[in-house]
Amino acid sequence: MMCCKECLDLLYDYLEGNLDPQIHSSLTEHLQDCPPCVAFINTYKSTTRICRETLKNAEMPEVVQIKLREFLKSAKRTV
């Protein structure tokens, strides 16, 4: 049976769907019996998602938009 360390070493390729079918199925088998690994994988996936959702919102403040518009206008005149 696959151990936790082997399971977590394969985590990246597992989530990308890059594992050989045989290895994939022994990993799935391990997960059926191992709540700590399931918790680890769930929180790993969740981490990616919540970080993306938070940082995706790095919007340009209105004041910066105005400054950039002015900058572009003057840059355009000189180019």
Partner: peptide
């Protein structure tokens, strides 16, 4: 996580993934 000699996890891992929605 920390593993024992056989490569199995030793500590209890909390699955907080369910809690993130309300906290997001």
């Amino acid at each position: 996580p920390s593993f024992n000699g056989g490569g199995f996890q030793q500590e209890k891992i909390q699955d907080w993934s369910e809690n993130t929605e309300s906290l997001m």
